[in-house]
């Protein structure tokens, strides 16, 4: 089924009153589809990000997207989707961070802080140079996400990335986790620790970049972290941790896309998604406190 046919189907259901009225708008259906595609993937991958203590790294990759967009516009890519520069720059950024982390005596957070600052400085400088060439307000969409700008090409990119990442993440889930517990034990168990380390960095980066359009560069890393953090607070097993994280990320993505339209709130989609995730996190914390109270 093509995106067009799927869009028509959802719009038809919305017109018949089976779905929220806002979904009669094609652009909102696109945004909803992208949220449904990327939410579960971000939630699932987020459990590994949190376990491997890479929350700051995922934030940094998201922020690097800003510079990727600036480079894209500079080299003549369309400002609505400079994917070559986005993927190229963010992958380079992520791989450089990881390569240097393995070869310096700096802690990961210090190193990421250095790379992030330099990358943002580069991005800000390029954007000032570009200020005369594009409407700088368009970049607000890049920073905070927008439901208005998701087109069929973005959906295709998201779908390909989501399927690719899922196809790699699920069979390698145990090995990715084990590598962070004890690299020596992992190697004895046949896990190529360094190779998987780089692969994981690449997975996080491509998911992050693919999600920038809908969540925004500033906030995209948060959807990798907050749902998993909320799930970690209330789960008592790995199954609960993973499934709750997927559920929280999906709910936050859908709620963040639909609620501002339904309630006519002037909030960017990225902000709304992360606020929804934040509320879930708060709920999880309260549930945890309540459960502890019950335990006495």
């Amino acid at each position: 089924m093509s995106f067009e046919a799927l869009r028509a189907l959802v719009q038809g259901w919305a017109g018949a009153g089976l779905l929220p009225a806002g979904l009669t708008h094609g652009f909102l259906v696109n945004a909803l589809l992208s949220g449904l595609v990327i939410g579960p993937v971000l939630g699932g991958l987020g459990t590994l990000v949190v376990t491997k203590r890479l929350a700051f790294f995922s934030e940094a990759v998201g922020h690097a997207a800003l510079t990727g967009v600036a480079i894209g516009i500079l080299v003549g890519e369309p400002y609505t989707g400079p994917y070559a520069s986005l993927f190229g720059y963010c992958l380079l950024f992520a791989l450089l961070v990881n390569y240097t982390r393995n070869r310096s005596n700096l802690t990961a957070d210090t190193l990421i802080g250095v790379f992030l600052s330099v990358s943002l400085a580069l991005g800000a400088s390029l954007l000032l140079i570009l200020a005369s060439r594009v409407n700088i307000h368009i970049l607000e969409n890049v920073l905070f996400g927008s439901v208005l700008t998701v087109d069929d090409r973005d959906l295709t990119v998201l779908l390909v990335v989501a399927l690719g990442v899922t196809a790699l993440m699920l069979p390698l889930f145990n090995r990715l986790l084990l590598a962070s517990f004890n690299p020596a034990l992992a190697r004895v168990r046949g896990v190529p620790v360094k190779g998987l380390d780089y692969l994981f960095i690449v997975l996080v980066t491509v998911v992050t970049v693919a999600s920038v359009k809908i969540i925004g560069a500033i906030l995209v890393g948060a959807l990798l972290v907050i749902p998993a953090a909320a799930a970690r607070v209330v789960a008592s097993s790995l199954r609960g941790f993973f499934l709750l994280s997927v559920a929280f990320a999906s709910v936050a993505a859908v709620a963040g896309i639909l609620l501002p339209v339904q309630l006519a709130l002037p909030v960017p989609s990225g902000g709304a998604i992360i606020l929804a995730a934040g509320l879930l996190f708060l709920g999880a914390l309260l549930a945890r406190l309540f459960m502890k109270g019950e335990e006495g």
């Binding site: 459990t47 790995l238 993973f242």
Partner: peptide, 11 residues
């Protein structure tokens, strides 16, 4: 399960 099996441990 994380150490000894291929099937994702969360399953």
């Amino acid at each position: 399960a994380v150490l000894c099996q291929r099937r994702p441990a969360f399953l």
